[in-house]
Nucleic acid binder design. Structure first.
Lengths: 195, 195
DNA sequence: CCGCCGCCTTGACCTGGATCAACCCGAGGG
DNA sequence: CCCTCGGGTTGATCCAGGTCAAGGCGGCGG
């Protein structure tokens, strides 16, 4: 077993037989990415996803006008991939870019599907993953509905302290749904008021 | 079988044995709700959910300040329930209110869990449900990030034509994340411009 | 050492939507 | 028949954040 820590984390979520995990490991491959390198480019088929072993990524939604908005940051232990597009078997609308030199463990969707046919544990795990990401999205929806940009900023750092110093202010702004200028002003206002 | 049409719809999604569906039907009970009546009140345990047989509901997030924002409208064939809270086994933060005289088919979460232990099809179905709702939330997230209130309004009616005439303008505004005055102005502006 | 680049800041101005307040209109109940 | 009430409109004013434009500054390659 190459990734015992990972196995433990998953096994805590759903009962996952060791030999099933070994099969999955055999199908996965490690990939190293440089800063700025894309794990997934928009337009590409969304037939692979990965677990971040080391580094930070941003998932950027590329809209028609070329405006970039950031769907999520993902760091160690989290999944990267164009999840929604994968579920709908569509090409990716999302660019997934390494913000640091990174290492990931890549799985092909089709391999996962094969594993699912062999043992129910994968179905269960997929369910958990879907439910977990649903909760994340719902939380963000609520933040957009009920909070100001400044409140969203505070929440962001509460919920993602591990991203301190690893993501640019520009990108935080794009995540919050405001411009970088607006974010800069919010921060300087807060500096004056509190210290 | 009391709900053959429903069975067909589900069976198209995942392979669902007829006798499993009969078991589920036996555990479910119909409930009739008057206009304004709550299917779920905030603070109540989120141990039941339901399928809308007839009518329209709104899911209202009750925030500390008493401000109401609307998470979703749900009509015939859709599920109502405090899904995120259910998954986290927390009391509901959501009020679910009938906007019309309605009929729903109620399931208890614990009954579903029992069914899941008996046959994998329920696990699969739960997965589909989670994935589907994830996609919905992600779409909404994107709308908040990339679209103006007016664009969100247009999308709203494109995506929910069946709600025409059944939801108040006030509630549409609360769904879009703006005030009823702002929505009224957007609409009158559009009326002048196009006709 | 210089110049450029990526990232952040600051200023001036504009605008979408919030807020507060008055008012309209149609339906239902006394 | 009038009163009230829920839902919608309209006006005046305010403010958060967008837009455009001009620097600042640290790091790195030439």
């Amino acid at each position: 077993m190459r990734f015992p820590k990972l196995f433990e984390r998953l096994a805590a979520q759903v009962s996952l037989p060791e030999d099933e995990w070994e099969k999955a490991e055999a199908l996965a491959s490690e990939q190293v990415l440089a800063r700025r390198e894309l794990f997934l480019q928009p337009g590409a088929p969304s037939d692979r996803f990965a677990l971040v072993l080391q580094g930070v990524f941003r998932a950027v939604r590329v809209s028609a006008g070329g405006a970039e908005s950031i769907k999520a940051f993902r760091a160690e232990g989290e999944l990267i991939g164009a999840y929604a597009e994968m579920l709908q078997r569509r090409p990716s609308m999302t660019a997934i870019e390494a913000l640091e030199p990174s290492r990931v463990l890549v799985f092909r969707t089709s391999d996962l599907e094969a594993l699912e046919r062999g043992h129910v544990c994968w179905e269960r795990l997929a369910r958990r993953v879907a439910e977990y990401h649903f909760i994340l999205k719902e939380r963000r929806e609520q933040e957009f509905l009920d909070l100001t940009a400044e409140e969203r900023l505070v929440r962001f750092w509460e919920e993602h302290p591990h991203l301190k110093g690893r993501v640019s202010q520009r990108d935080v702004a794009a995540y919050l749904g405001i411009t970088e200028e607006a974010l800069s002003r919010i921060m300087s206002r807060r500096r004056k008021q509190r210290g």
